[in-house]
Design a protein around this nucleic acid. Structure first.
Lengths: 173, 173
DNA sequence: GGCCTAAGCTTGACACGTCAACTATATGCG
DNA sequence: CGCATATAGTTGACGTGTCAAGCTTAGGCC
């Protein structure tokens, strides 16, 4: 085996936590995305974009801010927005001051779709995740993930794509 | 807003926990996969397959068991194995008793590659995840994720693809 | 003003994941 | 035995994600 002093293997707790994360990422999340796709004809990415916009003033965000909020690269956002605009869920307008920038705005139809889908989506998240946790465990999970999430958003130099806090449930205006 | 009694929205703790999971899934994991790709010419899927085999007796597993262990669909496993076999990291042989089944075996070269990559991979996981947690927080994270992981593996009817406990660090034989 | 670099966004090519359909073998049952 | 059904694995098509390269506008500096 490699050098024990310089190779910081994971200890028992860390290893179990890592296995848990893998289970959630590789099983629960795909299932949640499958549910959105098959039962609601909507990609998880689309859902997150709509949620991000629903939580913004005027239901509007600069594209780069939207990318940050939804944890997307700009390229990916562009590709997805093409679809959302075609569907009529989002409208794109020129930024008035900065001719490089654009605004994305959630349409009434988009908000409608989000409101339709959200309860079932939350129910799925509950079924796969939070139904198995006591309130104390949910609290512990939140507490343990908070510093990780903070570091992921506060240290841009670590990451290629974007930063900023993510968003979960829809906020209606 | 929808019916408050029948629509179980997430409470503050759950919502924060969910945001934390999203941050980890949408930021940390992509970064970990990018690290494996660009610095070690290896996909995360490939890594998990090699790890699963390294932990099995004789470094060998039935393909369906391998799929379960690595949280993969059989289809995806087949696609990835094509590459791993071409690279010489894995060998496929017929199952002696069941003519439908096949065995995948980790080769010396594959084990070698795994041993080379693993320390750096663990270091990346540390940097993005566990460096931000106290031992108590790691313990809490493990404790909170355990029942979720258990339910994901114990209730096949919930999921389309496979089940079974996931694997994290390489086990050398 | 004229240049250079950075920011905002788009594009296209390629690789990966998913799903449904398919082949082949095994098992259960009349 | 003969048929139906289930299990093991493969295949190909299509949708999505990623990356590098590109275009346009802003801002800084001489």
């Amino acid at each position: 085996m490699t050098d024990e002093t310089s190779a910081p293997w994971l200890d028992a707790d860390e290893s179990q936590a890592w296995n848990g994360l893998l289970a959630v990422v590789q099983r629960a999340f795909p299932e949640i995305e499958r549910d959105l796709r098959t039962n609601h004809d909507m990609l998880a990415v689309h859902y997150h974009i709509l949620v991000s916009l629903s939580g913004a003033p005027e239901h509007t965000l600069r594209l780069s801010d939207l990318a940050h909020t939804a944890n997307l690269s700009q390229s990916r956002l562009t590709h997805r927005l093409r679809v959302l605009v075609d569907r009529g869920d989002v409208e794109i307008t020129q930024h008035p001051d900065d001719k490089r920038a654009k605004h994305a705005r959630l349409t009434e139809g988009g908000l409608q779709r989000l409101r339709t889908v959200a309860p079932a989506h939350v129910a799925t998240v509950r079924r796969l995740i939070f139904d198995h946790l006591s309130p104390a465990q949910s609290r512990a999970l939140a507490g343990a993930l908070a510093p990780i999430a903070a570091s992921l958003c506060d240290h841009p130099e670590y990451l290629n794509p974007q930063h900023c806090p993510p968003v979960a449930a829809p906020t209606d205006g």
